[in-house]
Amino acid sequence: MLRFLARRLLFAAVSVAAVVLFTFLLVHLAPGEPMLGSAEGARVAPAVLARQRALFGLDRPLPEQLARYAANLLHGRLGQSFVLHRPVADVIGAALGPTLLLGGVALLVSLLVGVAVGAAQAARPRSATDTLLGVGTLVLYSVPVFWLGLMLLLVFGQALHWLPVAGMTDPAIHDALSPLGRVVDVARHLVLPAASLALVQAAAFARFQRSTLLESLGGEFIRAARAKGLPERWVLLRHALRGALAPTLTLAGLSVPYFLAGSVLVESIFGWPGLGRVTYDAIFARDYNVIVGTALVAGVLVALGNLLADLAVAAADPRVRLDR
């Protein structure tokens, strides 16, 4: 088990390093000037620009910049943001919490809803319920996440006033609330963005859960349980669901990139102060160090997801040899 874990961790480290290297080269080799003001007619004096470039070492040859970046990285330093005048680690640190909260809740909700819907469908395949849920999940699965987000915002936020439109807290009174009140405040702000992310992914999980469940319901193991005269519901819950859960958990681990991609769109629609928005802003401002930093964090999150997926498979299925 330990050897397996060590191997996977080593591999995760290598893949994160590759992501960082690739992103670094991509942003530095891309045409464009990071230090130019974007205001029309406002000219940055060449001398100012040159000083700025020297300050960030952008006037050095690329291999030297890369070496310097790598050395800093090994000391845990991610460098300084060009635009925000502060360390990249601070920028990302502040944004990571909100993104993990949003992504984590969305993942959990989508798993619960997805498994439940998939199981309900598999319990009575080809019934009216199955067909109805099948059409529902198919359509949700096909809806662009930004479109769903816009609709939820306009309907539940602006038209019905049930939930706040944007942000993570109530700006005016959050600090004056009781601890429980603050939790409720954040939870209320979380509902719409998390729902936008979760609904689409729940549909994906449900579709997958249904088909794996049906597959395992056809398995010998289940036929034996049925032959023993166990009630159908029992068979489904105890035996089939257990067998089908591991693949679904694997899928959940592998869905991290989806949540990261969705967060770029959803965070900007709902003004959620997370990593997706930091990335988006940094890319448009050509804030090199922040771009590479966010790629690093995203790479780590994806690698962790993959690792969890591997572990889920290993834990659920003893046939998988851990030292492979």
Partner: peptide, 12 residues
């Protein structure tokens, strides 16, 4: 596969 695809496409 560990590379977040959307980040790459956005950057490009």
């Amino acid at each position: 596969m560990a590379m977040p695809r959307i980040f790459f496409l956005l950057a490009v």
